[in-house]
Simulated scan of single mutants.
Amino acid sequence: MAPLAQYLMADRNAEIALARSAAPKAISDDATVLVLGPHGYITAVKGKNGFVCLVDRGWTAQFDFPEFWNPKLRGPMCLNPQAARSILPISLKRTELALAGRSKEQILQGMKAAVAGKQLPPLEPGAMCYMLSKQGYLNDDVGHWMPHLMFYVPRDADWGADQPGSPVMLNPQFHDGPEPVKVMMVPADKWSDGTPAPAM
């Protein structure tokens, strides 16, 4: 892990704006917004529509991700109410372990213990999030990549992801972790501000 300061954003308003850029204004303007502090995420703005926007860091990725500790990663996301209740706790737990100075292997073991001890809520049907920000930075290879929606489904779900001609892609986020979740991604053709996105 790099020094903590590299993962934090000094300008709180900039982090709020980045988090909100994950979804269209009609959603993000009324969403709760979390920002990362030295001890975890805190509520910067209390919303009223049940959505939660935040900027994800690399330690919520798959455990074999080469950039797991890359402090440049910023993944703006806006979770719907179902995902805020059932997926956000996974991110919060991983963040808690990372900021406590745990190694990648210790975070993995901590998540296994949390799942085995039923410390995390079950996945709710319909859980999804928006990732439509132009300003995100998802890794050193692709930068902000492309706008997309993410749908959280049980591990045994099969949407025909990654098949020829399918618009659905499989996100590897939880493939090597204990969380019983699979993530399906569907590309979008516009950024959250309504401007066209480049074709894949």
Rank of each mutant, 00 (worst) to 15 (best):
L79H: 14
L79D: 07
L79T: 06
L79Y: 15
L79K: 03
N80I: 02
P81T: 04
P81Q: 06
P81W: 03
Q82E: 11
Q82C: 02
Q82K: 04
A84D: 01
R85E: 12
S86N: 08
S86Q: 08
I87K: 00
I87G: 02
L88Y: 07
P89W: 03
I90K: 06
L92N: 12
K93G: 01
K93W: 02
K93T: 09
T95N: 01
E96C: 01
E96N: 09
L97G: 01
A98W: 02
A100W: 03
G101T: 06
R102G: 09
K104S: 11
Q106G: 05
Q106T: 03
Q106I: 01
Q106W: 01
Q106R: 02
L108V: 09
L108E: 13
G110Y: 00
M111K: 00
K112T: 04
A113H: 03
A113W: 00
A113V: 00
A114M: 05
A114F: 04
V115H: 00
A116C: 03
A116P: 00
G117V: 04
K118T: 07
Q119I: 00
P121G: 05
P122T: 05
L123D: 08
E124P: 04
E124W: 06
G126S: 03
A127Y: 05
A127V: 06
A127E: 11
M128Q: 06
C129A: 13
C129P: 01
Y130P: 08
M131G: 08
S133N: 06
S133W: 05
S133C: 08
Q135V: 10
Q135A: 14
Q135N: 14
G136R: 12
G136T: 07
Y137G: 08
N139K: 03
D140I: 13
D140W: 10
D140A: 15
D140R: 10
D140G: 15
D141I: 14
D141G: 12
D141A: 15
D141R: 14
V142W: 08
V142D: 11
V142Y: 08
V142F: 14
V142G: 12
V142I: 15
G143V: 09
H144T: 13
H144E: 10
W145V: 12
W145H: 12
M146V: 11
M146H: 12
M146S: 14
M146N: 09
P147Y: 10
P147V: 11
H148T: 12
H148E: 09
L149T: 09
L149W: 11
M150W: 07
F151R: 08
Y152T: 04
Y152K: 02
P154I: 08
R155D: 13
R155V: 15
D156W: 10
D156F: 08
A157Y: 13
D158C: 13
D158S: 11
D158T: 10
W159V: 10
G160T: 12
G160N: 13
A161I: 11
